[in-house]
């Protein structure tokens, strides 16, 4: 109950942050504007409006990721420092509140805020996708075959993959939030912002660290081991980046649900790990 109260207060506080509101509004505005995107590639035999929808989807997913990224970073870096700066933490910790309850409550609040933001964007985004798909058609046969074109086929309206996409964005940034939360226990917001940025970039380039540490890599064994450690320790944000697969689901080999399940577990374990470290440090932290 204490954790929940702290989480709720954190959500209320974060939702009223002007800068976060601006990210949200701009993102939603751009998603809606993307409705007008089209790429009429007249030379392409198969490019109908289905290609336009793909552009909208790709743009929307990317945009939501950027917005969620900014939101989690900007919100996360101030989670603990702001409480200290405002001295609210003193009144809270002077009450019979355990320090881990405070950390867990703050993280939960941040994750809830992220969930609310991503959900709002997600609903708008999916609505835009459905709207764009309405009436979209594509020719069935390529022209150059010379076969009589049987006609146009209507594309499907609701794409479940976009729901997976939104969930993946949420999961991805819960992990980033947990990393930033850990840092915010002992770093100032500005330093934390850049640390979070760095961790995110390394995490997104996970395939690179993986390549550098793989058996095939030509690097010195010590360097390889170093990259192996980096690859394991830094959150693998690339795992959540399945936009391309979602946009072209014909390449699905395994079910998206199974993959999402594993990745959800990954996000959960990683966030727990970060939270635990944050708790260990925060227990001994002087505020």
């Amino acid at each position: 109950m204490i954790i929940w109260s702290i989480a709720k207060t954190t959500v209320g506080d974060a939702l009223r942050k002007k800068v976060l509101q601006i990210f949200l509004v701009v993102a939603i505005g751009l998603i809606i504007i993307s409705l007008s995107f089209s790429q009429t590639l007249s030379f392409s035999s198969r490019a109908g409006s289905s290609t336009d929808i793909m552009l909208v989807k790709s743009f929307g997913l990317g945009l939501m990721a950027v917005a969620a990224w900014l939101i989690s970073l900007v919100m996360g870096v101030s989670l603990i420092p702001q409480e200290i700066e405002r001295r609210t933490i003193y009144t809270i910790l002077a009450k019979p509140v355990k320090r881990y309850e405070f950390i867990v409550g703050k993280y939960l609040g941040a994750v809830l805020t992220l969930a609310i933001n991503v959900a709002i964007m997600g609903v708008v985004f999916i609505a835009v996708c459905v709207f764009k798909a309405m009436g979209a058609e594509q020719p069935i046969a390529p022209e150059e075959t010379g076969l009589p074109i049987v006609g146009m086929q209507q594309v499907g309206l609701f794409d479940w993959n976009m729901v997976w996409g939104v969930i993946m964005i949420f999961l991805q940034f819960t992990v980033l939030t947990s990393v930033v939360l850990l840092f915010s226990v002992f770093l100032t917001p500005t330093v934390n912002f850049f640390m979070g940025l760095g961790v995110y970039i390394i995490g997104v380039m996970a395939p690179l660290t993986e390549t550098l540490s793989s058996k095939e890599s030509q690097l010195h064994p010590v360097l390889k081991a170093f990259y192996r450690v980096i690859h394991t320790v830094v959150p693998n944000f690339d795992k959540f980046n399945v936009t391309n697969t979602l946009l072209h689901p014909e390449t699905h080999i395994e079910s998206m649900a199974k993959y999402t399940g594993i990745v959800t577990l990954y996000a959960l374990f990683y966030s727990l790990l970060m939270m635990l470290l944050a708790i260990i440090i925060f227990r001994k932290k002087e505020v």
Binding site: P207, L208, E210, T211, L212, S214, E216, T232, N236, D238, K239, V242, N244, T245, T251, H252, I253, E254, K258, Y259, I262, V263, L265, Y266, F269, Y270, L273
Partner: peptide, 27 residues
């Protein structure tokens, strides 16, 4: 647990994302 889930997810991801396969050069 984190390492384990990564290990579980890796092969699926490689199958889904050709580019991520280390041998054929995501990096």
């Amino acid at each position: 647990a984190v390492a384990w889930t990564q290990y579980l997810a890796d092969p699926i991801q490689y199958r889904m994302q050709e580019k991520a396969k280390p041998t054929s050069g995501g990096g």
